[in-house]
Design a protein around this nucleic acid. Structure first.
Lengths: 356, 356
DNA sequence: TTGTAAGCGTTATCAT
DNA sequence: ATGATAACGCTTACAA
């Protein structure tokens, strides 16, 4: 039984009650190496009284003495973003059995806050740091610069241009390739593209994948069907961007029977524009997103998309940080500094064969 | 500058470097009452060297000595649920300026985990507890039973049947009333309902609000147009439930020109069913959701819904917990144990006037 | 096989 | 106006 508030029961209480010394109690309760030499009945006795008294070690005292916090800092760029949330799920599940506690901080899409929380986490003596980034996250930052290579730090979710910093991401190139392949196989040849912001390497890699597919299949990409989102800070800018660029596409009167969007939100913006123009998805135009955010499954038509294995990405990042934290300093075992997981195509209702 | 890893600079370092004693340093740096008697130049000196050395107090030592953790436990029923996430936003914003740190734990819709994490948080000596619940959260639980009235605990987001436990929720009755009012004013009279699970008091209150509106306006509610979701553990059951019940409604061949759903996900399920049946929303049938989850804005047609002020709810809960934690024990100032915030109608594209 | 004692970094009480 | 000193609860040499 746990006794909230009031004074907590300490190791001394257990010692007195069981008739042994605090050290013995500590050794037994922690299964410390020396506990091998403790008589079985003694252990029994101690464990019993500990449970009976409802003893739980004071974490502050423990980490003060042992000089480790058993805590990992999780810096989430936007907790309201389902993208981040799913990565977090993987992190939590990986952390759960280890006894490490996640200290989750939400930067609310604000870079200033990000730096502030980063300091806060360091002050709280976290033993490692996982940054859960979406595409609004910007690289650089003073503190961040210092951290890498001195402190177990890893970024998940965002394809960093700076490859000196460790990260776990989806294979964006493969994702772009797969997206175009899917649409190509359905017979589409007049394909529109809404790319992500210019400087975003996630977007560039996806675009590279698409271009590779096009080249391999002698598919000409007409520049007039290509649009590009502008950089933004607003988490929902993808939607309005997708919508407006699609309207622009429509106004230009160039035909297209399919549209590949930078991500799901952009795709949903495109769907909105298409429908408002009196078109039907997928009958008049197929649409493909990227990410497989939860909304992709629940809108109508269900959105065909490229799935990022977000949970796995979170888990992978966690495993590395934990290892790095335990070894002590830098673990530079792995050959590459950025790990890539494969995406997969999730076919729903927003894509269909061309009417020939 | 913050020095990650390596040995941290302690108050002793600052003391030596500045030429004063640790006590004086502590007093100055904490702006303790006694610091009023400390000479200005001394303060100056101490603050400078503290900054120069990059001193940050060790939180473990501090809470060990001062006997408080400056930490609030946040038990989220499902972090992947945007509903929970928005409440969390309000909590974080309210907590941020106070210096209290949120310890966020995600139960992943699992009641066992919930209890486990609850214990964990208590062991970590949190000073208060906020439970962020969605409609899957079940009341009761041993530990929980003990907590209420002994420990600053509050539940946000879920309308508890047990009114001995403090909570912050939306005014569900008013929400139900407003939903029906909106649809009634658009001229609809043949209205279908998909209610939440039988035992869910959120659902019952909404239903009461609808019935009150109906009574006040002599609107007959035909039982044959009413369906009810079954209880479930799956976070997405609302979608499939909404879809299947709508299909059922359609099969029954009873006409309806509008549908009020228990929540947004249910509404989206209904939209899916309607569209698959060849109907157009809102032309052939208007649909209203509840919650105003992010997806409501991004699907097409945009979903008309009843907005819960989730962020405000989180903030309100936080304020209470903080106050309760600081006062010490129970703060039973407020007359009612459950605070209700007003919902609002968000009109988007899924509702329209009846074609007369 | 078990107990004693020191010390982790703070803060608070008491002297000075 | 500032400094000694003890104590918070725990772990870990070292002693017995």
């Amino acid at each position: 039984m746990l006794r909230p508030r009031s004074t907590h029961v300490t190791i001394m209480d257990v010692a007195r009650q069981s008739g042994f010394s605090p050290s013995t109690v500590s050794i037994v309760l922690n299964d410390a190496p020396l506990s091998r030499h403790v008589a079985a009945p003694t252990k029994q006795r101690i464990r019993e009284t500990a449970k009976a008294l409802g003893y739980h070690p004071n974490p502050s005292a423990r980490s003060l003495r042992s000089r480790h916090s058993r805590t990992i800092g999780i810096l989430v760029f936007d907790l309201s973003d389902p993208f981040c949330t799913l990565i977090l799920l993987g992190i939590e599940k990986a952390l759960d059995p280890t006894g490490y506690l996640p200290l989750i901080m939400d930067a609310h899409n604000d870079r200033k806050q990000l730096e502030g929380y980063l300091e806060l986490l360091l002050e709280r003596r976290v033993e490692g740091l996982i940054v859960v980034a979406n595409w609004l996250f910007e690289e650089g930052g003073v503190l961040f610069e210092i951290l890498k290579n001195t402190f177990p730090t890893i970024v998940v979710g965002r394809d960093l241009a700076d490859d000196r910093i460790r990260s776990v991401v989806v294979d964006n190139e493969a994702g772009g390739y797969a997206a175009l392949q899917h649409i190509y196989r359905l017979g589409h040849r007049e394909i529109a593209f809404i790319l992500g912001p210019e400087k975003l390497s996630d977007s560039n890699r996806r675009w590279q994948g698409m271009q590779r597919f096009a080249a391999e299949h002698s598919l000409a990409i007409d520049e007039r069907r290509v649009r590009r989102l502008v950089e933004a800070l607003d988490p929902f800018s993808g939607f309005t961007g997708g919508r407006e660029l699609t309207e622009d596409l429509l106004r230009s009167r160039i035909k297209f029977s399919a549209l590949l969007a930078f991500d799901d939100l952009t795709a949903l913006g495109a769907v909105r524009a298409l429908c408002h123009a009196g078109m039907n998805v997928p009958r008049d135009c197929s649409v493909v997103g990227f990410d497989d955010a939860p909304l992709a499954a629940f809108c109508t038509p269900g959105l065909t998309t490229i799935r990022q294995p977000l949970e796995d990405m979170g888990a992978l990042a966690t495993e590395w940080v934990l290892k790095a934290a335990q070894v002590g300093e830098e673990v530079d075992g792995s050959p590459s500094t950025t790990q890539m997981l494969s995406p997969s195509v999730v076919v729903r209702e927003s894509t269909r064969e061309t009417r020939s």
